[in-house]
Simulated assay, not measured.
Amino acid sequence: MTDHSDGNLPDADLPTRDIARALVFDPENRLLLIEYEAVRPIDPAKPDARGFWFMPGGGLEPGESHEVACRRELAEEIGVAEVDLGPCVAVCDGPFHLFRKPRFARERYFVVRLASDAVDTSRLAETEDNPVRGTRWWPLDELAASAERIEPAGLAELAQRIVAGDVPHQPLRLDWRNA
């Protein structure tokens, strides 16, 4: 158990949130990510560094499956209502402190391939806890080489593996970067 001196709850006392997210690819095999502003510095050596990148998605509502929640969240966040949801390719479970409401996140990640790169993020900011800085289609080589904070660790490698046609048959376990 970790106790946080910045006022966050000890990890054992965090509320649990079940979350569905999508690795959204466009026809050029770029990955769509959203940049958020963290509530605390993401690197103690750089106190002004607060941006981090995350996949579209969000929490399950009562009675929703991960698949239903993922489709709903994609409609809300990127304006894509009808998607073919691919397999669950990864999970990431653990305490996450970069959002305003710290949580023990139990995340499931699904593959989505869009027919174009046209998305509508006009409603994105109104659904989020943290300020949204923007969205970006990331070429996978740039994503893998980036010094930006990308959550969770291993996301770029997983995206490259999927694009190469090696879709995991069982979900891989990813981890937060001390988030």
Rank of each mutant, 00 (worst) to 15 (best):
R50G: 09
G51D: 08
G51K: 13
F52V: 13
F52T: 15
W53N: 05
W53P: 09
W53G: 09
W53Y: 05
F54K: 15
F54S: 15
P56F: 12
P56E: 09
P56Y: 01
P56W: 07
G57T: 01
G57K: 00
G58C: 08
G58Y: 04
G59P: 06
G59Q: 03
L60T: 03
L60M: 09
L60V: 06
L60C: 07
E61T: 06
P62I: 03
P62Q: 03
P62K: 02
G63P: 05
E64C: 06
S65W: 11
S65L: 13
E67M: 05
V68R: 04
A69N: 00
R71T: 09
R72V: 06
E73N: 14
E73S: 13
E73I: 03
L74Q: 11
A75S: 14
A75H: 05
A75F: 03
E76P: 03
E77W: 01
E77I: 01
E77V: 01
I78T: 09
I78D: 11
G79H: 10
G79Y: 03
G79V: 10
G79E: 14
G79M: 12
G79Q: 12
V80K: 08
A81T: 11
A81G: 08
E82S: 14
E82L: 05
E82K: 14
V83R: 07
L85A: 10
P87Q: 08
C88G: 15
A90R: 00
V91T: 12
V91A: 01
V91R: 15
C92Y: 03
C92D: 11
D93Q: 01
D93V: 03
G94E: 11
G94I: 06
H97T: 15
H97P: 08
H97K: 12
H97Q: 12
H97G: 05
L98K: 08
F99Y: 14
R100S: 15
R100L: 15
R100N: 15
P102C: 04
P102D: 04
P102N: 04
R103A: 12
F104R: 07
F104M: 10
F104G: 06
